[in-house]
């Protein structure tokens, strides 16, 4: 199986969220960046497992500047065979999907995988855009995938449970928790990653379709109101009269 895994770079899950003085951009100063967890733990690891079981090759791809290379190297250390970076400043999901579709078209990947969303913009739209651009079937929020005799049986998370679907490659899939277990790269993987190819390709002409005009932090909640554990009637009264939620 030849599998393309789309990975992106996000601030660490515990990174402080603040913005540049004009509130137009995330303040990257002093921040730790990681591979988006859904891309790393679920999409990439399941792709490597499928390759281990069925043969083939796993390629990690990112559309972004050279400062994203460490993310791709990490993908190689975890077990991808090669990496591709499309050299461009990424702008929005559509712009990213368009770049990656332009690269992937005609390369006959059996499977293209990405995380269900990125933990910075929480869009959940990249995978379905890519699928439409590639004219391929798409399975969103997949928490399990089994592949046998040319058919994949996939669980997709829906409200209150799962739907089980069958589909034959090629298709696009977005990965959720459950699809695989996180793999920590070992020393050998890290050493080998240095010798694996990281190809930089030129971007194609494409525009963005959305623009962020401003970021804003949520209002301060104010201090918590502590309620006497012996007086739950008081809590119910507050929830009814003050908070108006019951």
């Amino acid at each position: 199986m030849n599998i393309l895994v789309c990975v992106s770079k996000t601030p660490d899950t515990t990174a402080k969220i603040d913005f540049t003085a004009d509130n137009k951009e995330y303040n990257e100063k002093g921040k730790q960046f990681i591979m988006n967890p859904y891309d790393e733990w679920y999409a990439l690891v399941r792709a490597i497992e499928l390759k281990e079981a069925n043969g083939g090759e796993v390629t990690v791809i990112n559309a972004g500047p050279a400062s994203n290379d460490p993310i791709l190297r990490k993908g190689l250390a975890i077990g991808a065979d090669k990496a591709v970076r499309i050299d461009v400043d990424s702008r929005d999901s559509y712009h990213n999907a368009f770049q990656i579709a332009a690269y992937a078209k005609g390369k006959n990947y059996d499977l293209i995988v990405a995380g269900k969303e990125t933990i910075d913009f929480n869009g959940s739209i990249f995978g379905s855009m890519l699928a439409e651009l590639m004219e391929l079937p798409f399975i969103s929020y997949s928490s399990k995938l089994e592949y046998k005799d040319g058919t994949a049986t996939v669980h997709r998370d829906v409200e209150g449970g799962v739907e089980i679907v069958k589909v034959s490659p090629p298709f696009v899939l977005s990965a959720a928790k459950g699809l695989a277990e996180q793999r920590i790269p070992n020393m050998r993987g890290i050493m080998m990653a240095k010798r694996k190819p990281l190809e930089v390709v030129e971007a194609v002409e494409a525009g963005e379709r959305t623009r962020i005009q401003e970021f804003e932090l949520p209002e301060d909640k104010g201090a918590v109101k502590m309620v006497d554990p012996e007086d739950m009637d008081e809590l119910v009264r507050l929830l009814h009269e003050e908070a108006k939620v019951i």
């Binding site: 999901s93 559509y94 999907a97 269900k116 929480n122 869009g123 959940s124 739209i125 990249f126 995978g127 379905s128 855009m129 890519l130 699928a131 439409e132 651009l133 798409f138 399975i139 969103s140 929020y141 997709r156 998370d157 829906v158 409200e159 379709r209 959305t210």
Partner: peptide
């Protein structure tokens, strides 16, 4: 709606319509 269904559909639909997609 940004439901399981909406998440699976919004991106695809926006590409088909040549539309901006703003989700969630």
């Amino acid at each position: 709606s940004h439901t399981a269904l909406g998440k699976a559909l919004a991106g695809r639909l926006s590409v088909r319509l040549e539309a901006a997609c703003i989700s969630a």
